Simulated assay, not measured.
Amino acid sequence: MFYIAILLIIVALLVAVLRLYGRKNVAENTGTTGPSCGSCSDTPSKCGCRCMLDAAVKEVEYYDDEELDTFIGRPSDMYDDEEAEQFRYVLYTMRQEEVPGWCRSIALRGINLPDQIKDEVTALLT
């Protein structure tokens, strides 16, 4: 566990350095900073990767779902229907544009979505 924490810190620092270097180059070449996740004009896959990298160096954002932290590390196929309903409740009480951020938050916190709601999350993301 200690080695994983050290590895995550090293990766976060590397991402931060690369991000600062990239912004400096973009500003020098175009006179502006790169697009943010909210106004991405890049290809969708590159934008999603950029947003995930940005999220990795920021603090985890909660969506009034602190109770889901009890599921950290649980495999996605090990939830019963009542536990999956807790995720479903959070999912359907947020605005649709918050769903990608919530998914990043869940992933960064080490929580696997229950298999029972993955199709619903995917439908809301598209």
Rank of each mutant, 00 (worst) to 15 (best):
V121L: 04
M52V: 11
R95E: 15
E83L: 01
D81C: 00
G31I: 05
S45A: 11
R95L: 05
T126S: 14
V26W: 04
R95A: 13
A16Y: 12
D42E: 15
W102G: 02
V121M: 05
R23M: 07
I9T: 13
E67S: 09
E98P: 00
C47K: 09
L14N: 13
G34D: 15
V26F: 09
E83M: 04
D65Q: 02
V15K: 00
D119L: 07
L20G: 09
L7Q: 13
Y62I: 03
L108G: 11
I106G: 02
L91I: 10
R23H: 04
E83D: 14
G31H: 08
M78Q: 15
Q86N: 11
L53T: 08
L68K: 01
T93A: 05
R50P: 01
T32F: 07
T126Q: 12
A84D: 10
T30A: 07
R23N: 14
C103D: 09
T93S: 13
R19G: 00
R104V: 01
N25W: 10
E59N: 12
G73A: 12
L125M: 14
S36Q: 11
F87L: 06
G48P: 01
F2C: 11
Y21C: 03
E67Q: 11
E82G: 04
E61S: 08
D81Y: 08
C49F: 11
V15P: 04
Y79R: 00
L108I: 06
V99N: 01
E82F: 08
S76H: 09
T32S: 11
M52H: 07
I72H: 02
I72T: 13
C47W: 14
K46D: 14
A27P: 00
G73T: 09
L113Q: 06
G48A: 12
P114L: 07
I4A: 09
V90D: 12
L91Y: 05
A56W: 05
D80H: 12
I9D: 15
N112S: 15
K58W: 03
V121G: 01
Y3E: 15
V26G: 00
N29D: 15
I9P: 01
S41T: 12
Y21H: 12
V90Q: 06
G38Q: 13
I72V: 15
Y21T: 07
M1K: 09
R19A: 00
S76W: 02
E66M: 11
L14D: 09
M94D: 10
C103L: 10
M78I: 01
Y63T: 03
D64Y: 06
E66F: 06
A107H: 10
V57H: 02
G110F: 07
T93V: 00
V15H: 01
Y62T: 08
P35R: 05
D77W: 04
P35S: 13
D80Q: 02
R109G: 04
P114S: 10
G34Y: 10
E82P: 00
D119C: 00
D54Q: 10
I9R: 14
L108M: 15
A27G: 03
I10Y: 10
I117D: 02
E120R: 06
V99R: 07
D54I: 00
M94N: 07
G48D: 15
